[in-house]
Design a protein around this nucleic acid. Structure first.
Lengths: 342, 342
DNA sequence: CTGAAAGCGCTTACAG
DNA sequence: CTGAAAGCGCTTACAG
């Protein structure tokens, strides 16, 4: 389909294409009538300027890119929505894409953003290899990294204090009287996950007479992963006729929801027999009859900080001091926790 | 930050920039050694070509755009994820954006896509004004429309049969023995919503001795909207000391989840006192203790059809026959429905 | 207030 | 197998 160019508009308006360009760009020093005539022609013909041509001159699209591992995870969904909203407020166009937890796709996506000369990127990385695989891009474009999957100090970074989050959560279970704890889920290749596991471990080993273990089976943190892991854990305990832990921490809310489902199927009552805690505070965690106790990541705060940091990096062009911001998570007590059954 | 250009690479490789361009583009008829030398330089210098310059010549970015009203709604989330996955399979870059249920933002987003000369667009519209407001863009770029918010026959369209969905759902409640039904939510400005309401109405009026009403308070279909609407309905019935409907259909799953929450707070038992049905079959509908009975939109089928139709439109350039595809919804019976209490 | 000219970084016939 | 040249549609000093 043929598109009109600025020259076509110029011809129709009886001016030079320079003048049309001026009209299109905010236009001061242009006669009001000329301006109106040009704009009217653009409107009636449905002219849309060619962003590629503009960018070629301006060398920067003004847009920003957002990459998350999995947009169907409610946490990233909500994060993305906020980020998109805030960024559009700044008048920028936004390119969103998912890496599907795949390093190659992540690479392709960031490359596509670079080729499109975005002004900046907000990236939530796939895992601990992200930095090594993408480091050639860092330093070539302003980037704000979300989460922990990155050696500190290399790129500006916003993350919730993951260690602190699970530490708090485990302490909470212990304060409720639980002595037998379990951490379900997480993968070695995610620094974020390792920090969460470590927070749990340290809380446990810091408490007298408390036992805690980590049980991992699948690398994902989706509902299904939680379901299968939970089911495996519950049935194994049942078969071996040993009691299961009375307090369970999960790698994420989605995962915890899956564990909850497994519990229902295995006939395990929550919170009567087992207390359950998630991580993220996804919107569905507060649903009636779910009412999941969880460690909340303050999403608005994270997003505001991310967008603001990125804008500063973009404005600062060259020197760009690397910043690190850790946001304090908040334990949200709902109805999946109670005193231990034994 | 300065970026290398194809000429810089050419100089470093001791060839013309034409040759570099050839190497970058699949490269036949180029000496293998030359090819390798060039690619190695590109790799080591971290060169990324300028997509704007390429597009300017090619006049088409090869990318496709996806616009949905609200990416934080799990339904659109899941839809978007599928669409993105399928589209990347075809080797295309994908631009995702949300209209936030705002006609102006929707317009801006589609405009941004046009300016970026995407090869095609998949659009789920804000409401019944979408067509009027955007029709100047239609016909200028291949578009596949998702949902019902569009006069039929104007643009290629994929939609679930919304009328059929609520009709089935209402018939199901009636077959369970319910005689007093209620439809909660929906807005006049959404054709999709109107069809759902109509399906309900027709099922009711086609059944002997069955009463059915529509109660609407808020235009949204989010959890909060359902919560407030449900609470208003339940408390009003309670105050006026009249029984509430024994069967409730909701405009969406999110909305139904909110109604469920209101029911819990109002002390209304589901399904003992009230049977509840949603629409969409979002992933959370199948959660344990939620187990929402709902009308499922076959998401994979919708997405596959959308991407395929769009590819055909793109390939067909000019004539582009308008197609219309209605997909049959599926009633998923879970645990929020039962026989009526009276 | 307006226009002619240069040039952004590529691709693509065309010629060799 | 390789290069010189034209041109994609804009923006932006510069000159008037």
């Amino acid at each position: 389909m043929e598109r009109l160019t600025i020259k076509d508009i110029a011809r129709m308006a009886g001016v030079s294409h320079t003048t049309v360009s001026r009209a299109l760009n905010g236009a001061r020093n242009i006669r009001p009538e000329t301006y109106e005539r040009i704009m009217e022609i653009c409107r009636s013909t449905g002219y849309t300027l060619n962003a590629a041509a503009r960018q070629l001159k301006r060398s920067d699209s003004g847009a920003i890119g957002i990459i998350v591992p999995d947009i169907s995870n409610a946490f990233f969904c909500e994060l993305t929505r906020h980020l998109e909203w805030l960024t559009r407020q700044e008048g920028r166009n936004v390119f969103i894409s998912s890496s599907f937890y795949d390093y190659d796709i992540e690479d392709q996506n960031i490359r596509a953003l670079m080729e499109n000369r975005v002004s900046g990127i907000i990236l939530s990385g796939v895992g601990d290899q992200t930095y090594l695989r993408l480091r050639d891009y860092f330093g070539k474009v302003p980037i704000v990294f979300l989460g922990d999957n990155l050696p500190e100090g290399m790129v500006s970074q916003i993350t919730v204090n993951n260690y602190e989050g699970t530490y708090m959560a485990a302490r909470y279970l212990i304060s409720l009287g639980h002595r037998d704890l379990m951490f379900l889920g997480g993968r070695k290749s995610s620094v974020t996950h390792c920090r969460r596991q470590q927070g749990f471990l340290d809380a446990v080993s810091g408490a007298e007479g408390v036992h805690g273990e980590i049980f991992t089976m699948l690398s994902g943190s989706r509902i299904e992963d939680g379901y299968h892991t939970g089911l495996a854990y519950f049935t194994r305990c049942l078969e071996e006729k040993r009691p299961f832990a009375t307090g369970i921490l999960c790698i994420s809310d989605h995962f915890a929801l899956g564990v909850m489902q497994a519990a229902v199927e295995a006939g395990v009552e929550i919170p009567e027999q087992v207390s359950l805690i998630g991580f993220d505070d996804v919107s569905f965690a507060s649903l009636p009859r779910i009412q999941l106790t969880t460690v909340s990541q303050p999403k608005e705060e994270i997003c505001t900080a991310a967008v603001q940091t990125l804008e500063e990096l973009i404005r600062a062009d060259r020197p760009a001091a690397v910043s690190y911001k850790a946001i304090q998570p908040v334990l949200i007590c709902r109805e999946t926790c109670g005193p231990p059954s034994r």
